[in-house]
């Protein structure tokens, strides 16, 4: 029912969306995971309390998180151009996606790690574990199921951000939906892209939940 060109455009859009989501999720986790760990361990009741560092990190995280993504996207454009050479297309969107989602991921990681039973941490301390050993052998492994759930939430959030980036010509499915639906009133194409986005969110969320349940040894 559609021309070959339309089908191709949508497939490219899907690939671009995947590219943006996974690249930015990956890099955002490289920043957000350590940041989240730092937020937990430097807390005043954490395993390596550094109250002023903790406060400073908390303020930075909150600051970035309070800027609406669409504004952040435009505000960091000069920075984006300086780094990847362009502020449009998938590559131009990855930079603001990372900046916006890393602090969000840090908070998700923080809340997952805070779920780890204080008693287990105390037990590790009583065995002479160093803060590093506690992070890698207790906090992260014990919080793994919750971290995976958090991961699915982060990826779906990044997916919705990336769709928003269509407004500035960010490429991917969101871009198509806005160009055809909003500018040209070709609602059919918009409808299809939105459905694909919905399916992607569902699949990522379901896979995350399944993986988390599979890895959790607490319930059998």
């Amino acid at each position: 029912m559609w021309s070959e060109a339309t089908v191709k455009m949508i497939s490219v859009g899907i690939l671009e969306s995947f590219y943006m989501i996974f690249l930015s999720s990956f890099i955002a986790y490289i920043i957000g995971l350590p940041l989240g760990v730092l937020l937990v361990v430097t807390d005043k009741d954490g395993i390596a309390p550094r109250v002023s560092l903790n406060k400073a990190l908390g303020v930075i995280v909150n600051l970035i998180r309070s800027v609406p993504f669409i504004i952040l996207l435009i505000a960091v454009m000069p920075f984006t151009r300086a780094i990847v050479g362009t502020s449009i297309g998938p590559n131009g969107v990855v930079v603001p996606l990372i900046i916006a989602s890393a602090p969000y991921i840090a908070r998700l990681v923080e809340s997952s790690l805070n779920e780890v039973d204080q008693g287990v941490i105390e037990a590790a301390q009583s065995m002479g574990a160093s803060p590093m050993q506690i992070i890698f052998k207790v906090l992260i492994p014990e919080a793994k199921p919750s971290l995976i759930i958090g991961g699915a939430i982060a990826v779906t959030t990044i997916l919705s951000y990336s769709a928003m980036a269509g407004i500035v010509g960010g490429g991917g499915l969101g871009d198509i939906a806005i160009r055809y639906g909003y500018h040209r009133y070709e609602t059919e194409i918009m409808f299809v892209t939105v459905i694909i986005l919905v399916i992607m969110v569902q699949v990522i969320q379901e896979l995350g939940t399944l993986w988390s349940k599979r890895s959790d040894k607490r319930i059998h």
Binding site: D117, G119, V120, E122, A123, Q125, S126, M127, G128, A129, S130, V138, P141, E142, K144, P145, S215, D216, K217, R218
Partner: peptide, 22 residues
Amino acid sequence: LLKARQSMGMIFQQFNLLMQRT
């Protein structure tokens, strides 16, 4: 101090085992 703690075992009311380990 960490080393010395290895010479002092401790057990707890709530057992405090690692739930994700056998």
